[in-house]
Design a binder for these strands. Structure first.
Length: 145
DNA sequence: GACATGATTGTTGAC
DNA sequence: GTCAACAATCATGTC
């Protein structure tokens, strides 16, 4: 569980400095190396967090600490069964598929750019492969299981 | 005003 | 195979 995190926690602040600075969330960073690079897909836990945050806010409207939400979500996540996690995992997989497509397009752009083709950093490639499926209702399309 | 921080797990990419 | 980085969130604090 926290194994990896623990290592990171050794230089937690330093890591976060880099992490946040690299472009986490809205901070967006001044120093985003690859602004065109597709963001990582949310893991099943993060998909769960999206809903959990709303629920947590409703039950704890006075809570303003995102850390508390994260901690509560983590405990809740651990208490959940695989069956309960299943829908979140399915959605996460769907996101992964989109991410894979986005990465292919991104890598392709890199290859083209490497050839001297300067694309005006239009995210068309991503837009093409990624149809902005925010609702994630069609995840079963890819999710064959 | 703008950015870093707090916590969480999972996943990916890089080495 | 292992490890580090990053993904979202947002009030608050610091500079």
């Amino acid at each position: 569980m926290k194994g990896k995190r623990s290592r990171a926690h050794e230089n937690d602040r330093d890591t976060k400095l880099k992490s946040r600075g690299a472009g986490a969330g809205k901070r967006k960073a001044k120093a985003a190396k690859d602004p065109n690079k597709p963001k990582r897909p949310p893991s099943a836990f993060f998909v769960f967090m999206e809903e959990f945050r709303q629920l947590f806010k409703r039950e704890n409207p006075n809570n303003k600490s995102v850390a508390a939400v994260g901690k509560a979500a983590g405990e809740k996540w651990k208490s959940m069964s695989d069956a309960e996690k299943a829908p979140y995992v399915a959605r996460a997989e769907s996101r992964k598929n989109d991410y894979s497509n986005s990465m292919k397009a991104y890598n392709k752009k890199l290859a083209e750019g490497d050839n001297g083709v300067e694309e005006n950093e239009s995210d068309k490639s991503k837009s093409e492969v990624k149809d902005e499926d925010e609702d994630g209702t069609e995840q079963e399309d890819e999710h064959d299981d």
